[in-house]
């Protein structure tokens, strides 16, 4: 039996500690996914909390056809998109984000802002949410095509095509920016 199976069984049998274990295990993954879509730390945390409440409420419906991680990703993706619609967050805000960290940002965000990564982050902010999410899931999170298809509910071939286009678009944006800089 895998660790995830054990955690699920424990949660369903009413062990309060077990759900905390699950939150600790997946909080970074969920928060990062929400942050990459919402581009705002406070909103991302709010959405991430909602994700875990949904996970808690729906855990008994988890049929184990996919891994728990993929299932949580799917909930996180949909929740973040819902929050984005409700709050009318525009990911383009990242593009306008100041080079210097504001008080809300922590050391990890600063770490992320190495020259190259900051450039990429801004490039990603110019992509459509779905395209940026595909790149995020495939390259940054190492999810397979099947898993991404499961998370986003796009067909596998559609994921491939969109990922290709997203990569192309990102490369275009980055090379344009580089040309502007030189």
């Amino acid at each position: 039996m895998t660790t995830d199976d054990q955690i699920i069984r424990n949660i369903i049998s009413g062990e309060q500690h077990a759900f905390r274990v699950l939150v600790n295990e997946y909080e970074d993954l969920v928060f990062t996914m929400c942050y990459r879509i919402l581009a705002h730390r406070h909103l991302a945390e709010e959405a991430a909390q909602d994700v875990f409440v949904k996970v808690y409420r729906k855990l008994h419906l988890f049929d184990q056809r996919s891994s728990l991680k993929t299932w949580i990703y799917r909930i996180a993706y949909r929740t973040a998109i819902d929050h984005q619609r409700k709050k009318r967050v525009r990911t383009i805000e990242l593009e306008k984000a100041p080079m210097v960290a504001d008080s809300q940002d922590d050391a990890q965000v600063l770490m992320e802002r190495s020259d190259e990564q900051q450039r990429i982050r801004r490039g990603l902010a110019q992509l459509k949410t779905i395209d940026a999410t595909l790149i995020n899931l495939y390259y940054m999170e190492g999810q397979s095509m099947e898993e991404i298809s499961e998370i986003t509910k796009l067909s596998k071939s559609n994921v491939k095509v969109r990922l290709h286009r997203a990569r192309h678009k990102l490369a275009e944006i980055l090379s344009r920016k580089q040309m502007e800089a030189t």
């Binding site: 009413g14 909080e27 928060f31 875990f52 390259y139």
Partner: peptide, 29 residues
């Protein structure tokens, strides 16, 4: 670089805040 993008962490005490938001009584499950 895309591969090496770091994951972010929520603020301290995130798990506690989640636990407080859960529906009353874990036995509901």
């Amino acid at each position: 670089n895309l591969k090496d993008f770091p994951r972010l962490s929520p603020n301290e005490g995130f798990a506690n805040r989640v636990m407080q938001k859960l529906p009353a009584g874990l036995n509901r499950n």
